[in-house]
Design a protein around this nucleic acid. Structure first.
Lengths: 167, 167
DNA sequence: TGTAAATATGTTGTTGGACAGACTATATTC
DNA sequence: GAATATAGTCTGTCCAACAACATATTTACA
């Protein structure tokens, strides 16, 4: 811990390169632990929930769009969807306009399941942020959201080698 | 986007449970992409850097503490350290007080390497946060750091890592 | 003291997810 | 209608995570 920065919140943070990675990893770890417990009974667990949530809230036109949104490889998405279809949570319906593509829609049972688990997930998220002041938690959510959209916008596809010309 | 929350920053975010997970995943993905490029030539890549950084900055008394700090499984840490030792970056020296334990120390070459790569990592972190206002980036760093320490403190992480909660 | 439990680390084997490449079916383009 | 592009699936491979076991050492306690 060498140099440090005084911030408006009164917290002093060590300015060590790499700490951001440690912080992100630790937060994601805490999130996953709670999230996992919240959706343990869902088919395909965390990713099952994420897929179902994306299907309902984002209404992607085909699997490719769905996979791109969640940054899930298409070959992985295939068996993820297999699991969800087997569980009767979603359906693959052929797109009449482009019969190569398949649209994923939630079944009625899937919608109900999503509602149920969204409550649990919301509770898990609240618990994760429970250690922060309410204002801080809200700010953090906003800033992370903005940063996430930046990343999502500037990182198309799954090829990580494009965005790294600068080093 | 159904319901939304108006925040002090003027940004509108969708209040969908699970979005926090998507945000975190996306940010971590962007971070990893840049980080990976920054430390590609380092032995053991990202984790090699993280281990070396922790060894130098946190000075953990033994491997167990090191692994607990980074949330790395001990069996993984073993071959991670093998790689770093082979590369001449760190050394395992037996603890004279407890001959079961080994203290990991950086070699001179390792220290130099760390300095070199810390510059690159700092640049990568700055680039990731580049889309945010400077104040926002600083706030985000502070809040994530606080949350990360919460998680690190409250995770039931198996081992007595309390000895290292000195951040 | 002697012995059982606990601890620190290393080794081996298994498993699951990520990913590349081949393959099928359908669409578009010229 | 031949060539090429796209959506999805299937197969095989690689690596990290983890469990189970092995070894050396320390600690607890009878």
């Amino acid at each position: 811990m060498t140099e440090s920065t005084q911030t408006s919140t009164g917290i002093t943070t060590a300015a060590v390169p790499g700490d951001l990675g440690w912080h992100l990893g630790m937060v994601l770890r805490g999130y996953q632990t709670r999230f996992e417990a919240a959706v343990a009974e869902m088919p395909a667990g965390i990713r099952g929930f994420q897929v179902l949530s994306a299907v309902v809230h984002k209404d992607p036109p085909n699997q490719q769009a769905l996979g791109a949104h969640l940054a899930i490889d298409r070959t992985v998405l295939t068996y993820l969807l297999d699991t969800l279809v087997d569980a009767g949570v979603v359906e693959r319906i052929p797109d009449p306009a482009d019969r190569r593509a398949r649209k994923i829609i939630a079944t009625e049972s899937g919608r109900q399941m999503l509602v149920t688990y969204e409550e649990r997930v919301a509770a898990a998220e609240a618990e994760l942020l429970g250690g922060l002041e309410e204002d801080d938690a809200r700010s953090l959510g906003v800033l992370i959201g903005r940063l996430a959209r930046n990343v999502h916008r500037t990182q198309p596809g799954a090829s990580p080698c494009e965005a790294m010309d600068n080093l």
